[in-house]
Each structure stands twice: as structure tokens, then as C-alpha cells.
Write a protein that binds this DNA or RNA. Structure first.
Lengths: 245, 245
DNA sequence: CGACACCTTGAAGAGGTTCAAGAAATGTGG
DNA sequence: CCACATTTCTTGAACCTCTTCAAGGTGTCG
């Protein structure tokens, strides 16, 4: 009879985690996969409304979201703050802390959450040996940089309707990649948080939702959104250049 | 008599580059320093107005700016574009290309420039062996993420005057770190490029400059700017919270 | 020196914000 | 399980900031 696998080992092993393909390199052989299991030290639960980390705290780990939903925000000394992103299962947070060994933003759960804690020194050690992990870490950071370019484009050059349309399309696309509907979603964040992310006031977000409803593009019941005309949303984000001659 | 050091070797060696402390890890021993010299394959000159790389081009290297000035911009299909940053000597560009093996923005020289070409596979190989380089690469990427958080805060929550003040302070601070004046600078970019970066129209940038001049905060002669009252600029960016009781 | 790119300024207009009030949903404690 | 407090959302009206459009000025480079 086989000796039972220790509970703890099962619990934190990436090798049998169903989110593996979202947060870990793919196509690894068994040896490398085993090594990767060492990356995750522990798990941590975060209650809705409380922070995984805060600006100024010492950085020592990256976090892979298992369940739940986070927002990250930066704050100025005079109290203004800006939501810099919303993160869901399979996404990695904490990259901001690497440069100065301390976090420069807050990561707050906007829904009860659980994360895998990946001590960064371990990540660095193993990624020196497992090339696929090294590549993966680089890609994750680069992806974040590219994502932020997109947000800058949105904040710098789009109008309210375009921003909200882009936001909705981005959300459903990510949810769809996780097996959810392409056309229906539940917003985990308030209008104010959406507004902060999009550089708009909450009233403007609300009004823009109402306009989309009037135009028959979406149905909105509080935080429940059904997209009726995804093409219209795409059109709003990316107005077609003039018809071919 | 010593044999002469080959010209080519001198030319691309980081170990005797005076920008070393800006783009390379510090405090290395000689052995590691020698290894780092292999990171830079060649140099490349870029004429003002032409691109180091463009959106869609294959990614294979990061670039360290030796001389000159760059802007990076992202573009939408319908032709809108957004300047995502201005880069000067010692800064690294090309990080956007890592995630998908192709660049997702344009890097255009806004002043004749020269860059060190650092093939990314070489960087990855050497950073597996030289821990300081690995750490350094991670910090560079993290720094870029944090910088972009700052831009998002600016675009999402500041008004025109605050944006321009923050922009000027950031520029002189970086120039000062490179040995230039704390109070005088020459803008290498047009009003339109500044506007694109700050999410404003060029007219608004121009008007805001004029307002700063009227208020005696700066002197402006085309692209020559002298900061007369840096505290006032800081005050504009970060309005003090109410006086202590 | 003339053409071109860049910058400044004015006036009118649009988009988003602010302030305010009320409605709907959510959570809490009795 | 209901009543009440709180949070969140919606909508209206006035206002403000920034944009748009337009014209003229300044600087630069072949």
C-alpha cells in the first residue's frame, strides 16, 4: 500500500493546481514541475476589504491569486488615490515591490480571496535553474508593462464612453478565459472604483452605463451586466476608419 | 610592451563605460564585471526622428541609451497614439517586447542617439549565472511598472497644471541625476508630444506654460525652461493638507 | 530667404465634474 | 425575519476645465 501523500504537500503543490496554466510556465517536464512546487511557500486568505499588502510594507513575495478579486491602488501624500488595476484568479500581484524592496501600492481584496505566497528569493533561486521559470517571470513583468501602456492610452486619449467600453470588453475577455460567460458578468467593484481606474467620477460612470442601456448595448442591474451588443462596444473603443472607397 | 587592447573591445565594454552605474548593477567583482561585458553585443546609432524599433517588429534585445533622447508611443488601429514615456541616457528600453516576442510600441529618437544593443537571450543566460544581473533586470522591470503607476495617477486624477508641474519636476530630477542643472532644462520634445504624454492638447500645454510664466514660477523661451520656484511646482503637484492645528 | 514646423493666444463649445436629492440595495442587530 | 442604518447607485442642473477651431507669430533649416 502506498504511503499517503501529506495533506500539506497536496495543498500547496502547483503541479496539481487547476490554475497552473494561468500562473505557471506550461510544457514542463516532471522534474522541473516538481521544482516549481517549491515556489509556493504557503497560502493566505484575505477577507473582502482588507489588504494583502500596503504601500510602504516590506516586499518579500509575489502572490498568485487563487480565488477572489483584488484592486491595486497608488496614493498621493495629499490623499488622492488611483486604482491601477483589478486582478482576478491566476494573476500575479506584488511586482511593484521588487525595485525598492517595499511595496508602493495597496492590494485590497474586493471579494474574499485566497492567494499563493511565492517568496521572491525562492523565485529568483529557482529561476536560475529552471529556464522556463525565468522566462515566465520576465514575461509576467513585461505583460504588466504592456497592460499599463494600454491603460495610459485609455486615460490619455479616450473619452468616457470609450473608456467604459474598453473596460467592459477587457473584463469579459478575462472572465471568459476563465470559463465564464462572454456576455454576462458581475462587477466586483463599485462605480467609484471603476471611476478611479478609468479617470472618471462615479457619476460619470453611472451616466455612461445608463447611456449604454438606452442605446441597447448592455443591460445593467446594479453590478450585474449583460452585454447585448459586443460589436457596438468594440466600435465605440475603436471607431472604424472611413469605409473603403 | 603591452599588446594594445582591440578597439572593438574598448568600444562596447560596460566595464569602462561612464554610464555604468546607471544601467548596470553596482558593486560587482572583476570576474562578474567581465561577464557583463558580454551582455552588450554592439552599439547602434539612431538619427533624430527615426525609430529604434516599431510596434510589431520582432523583439530580440533590450537597449541601453548611451546618448540622446527617446520617446515611446503606443498606437491604436484607428490612428490615435499616446506617448508612454521619454527616455534619456542610462535608461533601458524594449521591455514591452518580452511578453510576446514582438514590440508593442514604437521607440523613436527625438534627438540623435546611440544605444547599446543587449540581446535578450544573452541577458537571460548571463543572469542565470550572475545573481546581481538577475536582480538588476528584475528591478529595472519593476521600476518601469512603478513609473507607469505614477503616470496613471497623473492621467487619472490630476488637472492640467498639476500634470505639467509633475512633468517638469520629474524631468529636472532625472537630468540632475545625470549632472545637469536642477533649475534649467531644454525640452527635447514638442508641445504636442508633451501633451500626448500628459493626456492634454498642445494648446493646453502651451497655455499652462504661459500661466506658470505669469505666476513667476518658470521662465520659458521655446524649449528652454528655467525653474524659478521649484517649491511652487511641488505645491501645485501636491497641495498641502490643511495646516497643523 | 523662403518654406515649414512649432508655438502662442483668443473665442466658442463640449464633455465631465460638482453639488444635491432621492432611490435601491445591502448589512446589522434586535 | 423585519426595521433601520449605511452604502451604493442614479439622475438633474449649474459650472468649470479643457478642447476645438482659427489666426498670427516665432524659430529653424536647407
Amino acid at each position: 500500500m502506498l504511503s499517503p501523500i501529506p495533506i500539506q504537500a497536496i495543498k500547496v503543490a502547483c503541479s496539481n493546481c487547476n490554475l497552473r496554466e494561468l500562473c505557471m510556465p506550461i510544457g514542463l517536464n516532471d522534474t522541473d514541475m516538481k521544482r516549481l512546487d517549491d515556489v509556493v511557500a504557503t497560502r493566505r486568505k484575505v477577507k473582502r476589504g482588507s489588504a494583502l499588502f500596503r504601500n510602504g510594507e516590506r516586499f518579500n513575495a509575489l502572490y498568485a491569486i487563487r480565488t477572489g478579486f483584488f484592486k491595486t491602488c497608488v496614493t498621493t501624500e495629499d490623499g488622492r488615490d488611483q486604482v491601477t488595476g483589478f486582478q482576478m484568479a491566476g494573476e500575479i500581484i506584488g511586482l511593484d515591490g521588487i525595485v525598492s524592496d517595499q511595496h508602493t501600492c495597496d492590494a485590497v481584496a474586493i471579494e474574499d480571496a485566497e492567494v499563493c505566497v511565492m517568496p521572491f528569493d525562492t523565485i529568483e533561486r529557482i529561476s536560475r535553474e529552471v529556464t522556463a521559470l525565468q522566462t515566465h517571470v520576465h514575461k509576467i513583468m513585461s505583460r504588466e508593462i504592456v497592460r499599463e501602456h494600454g491603460v495610459m492610452l485609455l486615460l490619455g486619449s479616450m473619452r468616457a464612453e470609450e473608456r467604459l467600453a474598453a473596460f467592459l470588453l477587457n473584463l469579459v475577455q478575462r472572465l471568459h478565459a476563465r470559463g465564464f460567460s462572454q456576455s454576462e458578468l458581475v462587477l466586483r467593484m463599485t462605480r467609484e472604483e471603476i471611476g478611479s481606474y478609468l479617470g472618471l467620477k462615479l457619476e460619470t460612470v453611472s451616466r455612461t452605463f445608463s447611456k449604454f442601456v438606452d442605446d441597447g448595448i448592455v443591460e445593467v442591474k446594479q453590478r450585474h451586466v449583460r452585454i447585448l451588443d459586443a460589436d457596438a462596444l468594440k466600435q465605440i473603443v475603436n471607431p472604424q476608419t472611413c469605409a473603403p472607397h
